[in-house]
Write a protein that binds this DNA or RNA. Structure first.
Lengths: 276, 276
DNA sequence: TTGCTCCTCACGTCACGTGAGGTGGC
DNA sequence: TTGCTCCTCACGTCACGTGAGGTGGC
């Protein structure tokens, strides 16, 4: 019979850990003194302790080790548990490596001075939503402001007439691939409460269609300030997507979080992406 | 001004997380209602929130993110932090991969039926210690019991005469490489309290030398039962060492935790090892 | 008035480590 | 008697998630 300190020295396990294993019932001392609470261990408990350490070393939690020690589990089951562990660790390694990739991408970005200061690109999941939308090809960029004004005016009028309330900020979808200054294929949209199902209509000669817009993973960033600076936000997202090994799988969305009439506008840019 | 639910929906961050960031001062709502505690956020806080998310995504803790947001840190410093992170993640990847290696080794062991049931090999660090020792070449294995008896008898007598107490169980070091049944180069030893420094002596014609024994990393397992079964323990350690990519760097030790006169003996085998 | 949203505790997570404060054994 | 060992709480770790129990706003 050994006092906890001796057993600790021989086993190489701290006293605190031994007390912890006692407390959770994983390794009880062979005897505990009733009067002073002293724990007494036996050398014959070393194999059990070593089994605990060996299983812990294979990545099992103490909670998982308990049953393995109690019931005598068939090697077949042990094998199953190890296979599971294996898959779990492989998963974690993959995650760590993707994290490493992100850190390295950021370092390269800083070092190559293509550092898009001020823009932080994040990945977010956007739900599928119901929207009211209208679409037109705007001939030149100079006409964007008036055309967008007209489109959103019609949309809000339509939403009001339908007895609905927008369920979020209005946004645009740009269907032309790449940056263009002419013939900009623009879809303007207002999100509606889920489940609402109004009919199509024409307002002020503008055709409005309610529809469902697919959600998914988005690479997104927020631009704070006048719209003339927005190309920088697009560039920042583009750089992030390339550096982090994603692929653009749809047209970008521009979400007008704070409109131009309420001070400095705040605009979010989203690109639907997939891991490449 | 947005209620927490709206801000949560727009940012894609849970309400609970937003409350947590408020609590630790990472992102305070622009306004908190005094009467009911409602938090109100602004769209203009989205860039800050995104910065938090982006840094978190690079593996920084919330505690590390705080200063980065408050003080405007130079890109030079950011670079330093990223380099540190990078090294840290590489370290973790290496650890996970070694864990994966251990799990795979165990799986192979089970599948190839060379499964040494009952032996759990663990890695432990043994301290350098002061010992009293005597060494001789035992001609045949049949004489081991009597020779060991004689050696330990002399050692204990010596320790007693020196006015010392053994500081741990007695053990043997086997200097012959591989398993042999003849001419076994055996060193018997008794650990002494650290700092004690007795003189060499001869007891019953047996020469006893006090010395220092180097510690280090050991692959160890415990054998429970008669000494005839001990070769299995050696085999188990050998298999473990090979499977886990270690290398034997010294002679094995056999530690007599429970001697043969106290019921079933309990014996620990240790091999000094290094990562190969 | 009824849902819906929001609030504040308090506790749990995983495997211990770190004091604080006190007692038993040689 | 004096160190040394041992004991039992209680709290901290990291970034939230999960109730419990209660209140404000349309």
């Amino acid at each position: 019979m050994l006092k906890i300190g001796e057993f600790s020295r021989i086993s190489g396990v701290t006293i605190i850990t031994l007390r912890h294993y006692d407390q959770i019932g994983l390794l009880k001392p062979v005897h505990t003194d009733d009067s002073n609470g002293y724990r007494y261990y036996s050398m014959r408990q070393l194999p059990r302790l070593n089994r605990i350490l060996a299983l812990k070393d294979l990545g099992f939690t103490l909670e998982q080790i308990g049953p393995v020690l109690r019931e005598n589990i068939a090697p077949e089951q042990i094998r199953g548990m190890l296979r599971l562990k294996q898959a779990e660790i492989e998963q974690r390694v993959a995650e760590e490596q993707s994290l490493l990739g992100r850190v390295e991408a950021r370092l390269r970005q800083i070092e190559s001075e293509e550092y898009m200061a001020g823009y932080d690109v994040v990945l977010k999941t956007v739900d599928t939503m119901t929207i009211a939308t209208t679409r037109e090809v705007v001939p030149t960029i100079g006409e964007m402001a008036t055309r967008c004004g007209a489109m959103f005016g019609a949309l809000f009028q339509y939403v009001g007439q339908s007895g609905l309330k927008p369920s979020g900020p209005p946004f645009a979808i740009y269907h032309c691939p790449g940056y263009t200054e002419t013939d900009i294929d623009t879809e303007s949209a207002v999100p509606l409460p889920n489940g609402s199902n109004p009919a199509p209509a024409t307002v002020d000669g503008i055709a409005i269609t309610p529809q469902s817009l697919e959600g998914g993973e988005m690479a997104a960033t927020v631009h704070h300030g006048p719209y003339t600076g927005i190309p920088n936000a697009y560039a920042a997202i583009g750089a992030w997507i390339e550096a982090n090994g994603y692929r653009i799988v749809g047209p970008p969305r521009e979400i007008y979080l704070v409109g131009p009439h309420e001070g400095e506008p705040v605009t979010e840019i989203q690109y639907p992406v997939q891991k490449a």
